[in-house]
């Protein structure tokens, strides 16, 4: 038997990917639910009460994974957008557009949970900590990307302009982070520091990692669902969408 060659480019066609994504979503959604349940169990029941911060620290099981995801998704988004710009593949650009709202959501979540954590810990909802400030600027970058894409009506220009902006952002994020750190160390009062984390119990670390995995699965499922919507919207004049919708109606 001649081994059949897998045509990987087949999956880069929006029509093929639409159905592939439809099959993958339930698996990722299920995995997300399972990991969330496990992670929350670890976070709420298995992890011990912190000696200094009491129960309030448990918010890190959401806060830290959200912060990780917010930065990671930005890089992934820029990667997809850049790929779309260079190779002119429509699907890559659609992935980038689909990733942006999820990334912004995690950034917001990281900021919000950080504020809720900050109140009992530092006595203030907002401190100008270097990481919080960088996170806030990252949120601005996400909002800029989404507003630019929303303002441009022509989808092709929206994809390409968004890609340039995302890539400029990726070059700038390290510079911004570094400059905010620098600014923070010069102006910092001695009391607040996130960097001196006490030695973490193994179960805490485990809880955070499981929650991070859960966020991963959730992001993939949501992004796939969103990319399916974008594909349908962009390709609504094409023959396969018409056929598909006709089939759905019956």
């Amino acid at each position: 038997m001649v081994p059949q060659k897998i045509n990987w480019f087949k999956y880069s066609s929006p029509a093929t990917f639409y159905f592939l994504a439809g099959k993958m979503i339930p698996w990722f959604a299920g995995a997300a639910v399972a990991f969330f349940a496990w992670g929350l169990y670890l976070g709420f029941f298995a992890a011990p009460t912190d000696a200094q911060q009491g129960e309030a620290y448990r918010i890190i099981f959401l806060h830290v994974p959200a912060a990780w995801m917010s930065m990671f998704i930005y890089v992934v988004m820029a990667g997809w957008a850049g790929l779309g710009l260079v190779l002119n593949t429509r699907l890559s650009s659609m992935m980038a557009s689909a990733l942006a709202p999820t990334g912004a959501m995690f950034t917001f979540l990281a900021l919000w949970s950080g504020a809720l954590w900050g109140k009992p810990t530092w006595g203030a909802y907002w401190v100008w900590d270097a990481r919080l400030t960088s996170e806030l600027i990252l949120l601005f970058l996400y909002i800029g990307f989404m507003s630019l894409q929303a303002t441009i009506e022509d989808p092709r220009r929206a994809d390409r302009a968004g890609a340039v902006l995302a890539l400029v952002g990726v070059v700038n994020v390290p510079i911004i982070y570094f400059s905010v750190r620098w600014w923070n160390t010069l102006h910092q009062g001695a009391s607040v520091s996130l960097t001196q984390a006490p030695a973490m119990a193994a179960v805490m670390l485990q809880g955070m990692l499981v929650m991070a995995l859960a966020c991963w699965m959730y992001s993939i499922a949501v992004v796939l669902a969103r990319v399916r919507c974008i594909i349908l919207e962009r390709e609504r004049h094409s023959a396969w969408v018409a056929e598909f919708l006709e089939g759905e109606r019956q």
């Binding site: 600027i137 800029g144 303002t151 911004i176 905010v180 600014w183």
Partner: peptide, 17 residues
């Protein structure tokens, strides 16, 4: 208005230094 949204976050390092 949009240009301010895109550009101002990128100005942060210049402002700080």
């Amino acid at each position: 208005v949009l240009v301010s949204l895109l550009v101002l976050p990128l100005y942060v390092p210049v402002l700080i230094f």
